[in-house]
Simulated assay, not measured.
Amino acid sequence: MGACKLTLNVKKGIINEALIENIGCSGMTHAAAMAAEILPNKTLTEALNTDLVCDAINKAMRELFLQLSYGRSQSSFSDGGLPVGAAWEDLGSGACSQVGTSYGTSEQGVRYLDTTEGHVLRMGLDENDEVIGYEFVNVGKMMSEIAAGASADEALAAAIGTYGRFEEATRFIDPRRSSQHSDQITEKGVTCNG
Rank of each mutant, 00 (worst) to 15 (best):
M1I: 10
M1W: 12
G2W: 02
C4E: 05
C4A: 04
K5Q: 06
L6I: 00
T7D: 13
L8W: 07
V10H: 11
V10M: 12
G13K: 00
G13H: 00
N16P: 11
A18Y: 00
A18C: 03
S26G: 10
M28Y: 05
T29F: 06
H30R: 11
A32R: 02
A32Y: 03
A32W: 04
A32T: 06
M34C: 00
A36Y: 12
A36K: 12
E37L: 05
I38R: 14
I38M: 13
I38H: 13
P40D: 00
K42P: 09
T45E: 08
T50I: 02
D51F: 12
L52F: 13
L52T: 13
D55Q: 14
K59R: 13
A60I: 01
M61T: 11
M61W: 13
L64A: 01
L64V: 03
F65H: 01
Q67M: 10
Q74V: 08
S76Q: 07
S78V: 15
G80L: 08
L82G: 05
P83S: 12
A86W: 00
D90P: 05
S93T: 14
S93Q: 14
A95L: 08
A95P: 05
C96F: 11
S97N: 09
S97M: 02
Q98S: 13
Q98F: 15
V99H: 14
G100A: 02
G100C: 02
G104I: 02
S106N: 10
V110K: 09
V110L: 14
V110I: 14
R111L: 01
L113Y: 09
L113K: 06
T115N: 11
T116C: 11
G118F: 07
V120A: 10
V120K: 08
V120Y: 11
L121D: 05
L121P: 09
L125D: 00
L125H: 00
D126S: 04
D129L: 04
V131L: 11
Y134R: 02
E135K: 02
N138M: 00
M142N: 01
S144H: 09
G149W: 09
A152G: 06
A152R: 14
E154V: 08
A155C: 08
L156I: 07
L156A: 02
A158F: 07
A158W: 07
A159D: 05
A159C: 01
G161V: 01
Y163G: 01
E167D: 07
A169T: 07
I173A: 04
R177M: 10
R177D: 08
S178F: 15
Q180K: 01
S182H: 08
D183F: 04
I185E: 09
T186E: 12
K188F: 14
G189Q: 06
V190Y: 05
N193S: 02
N193G: 04
G194R: 14
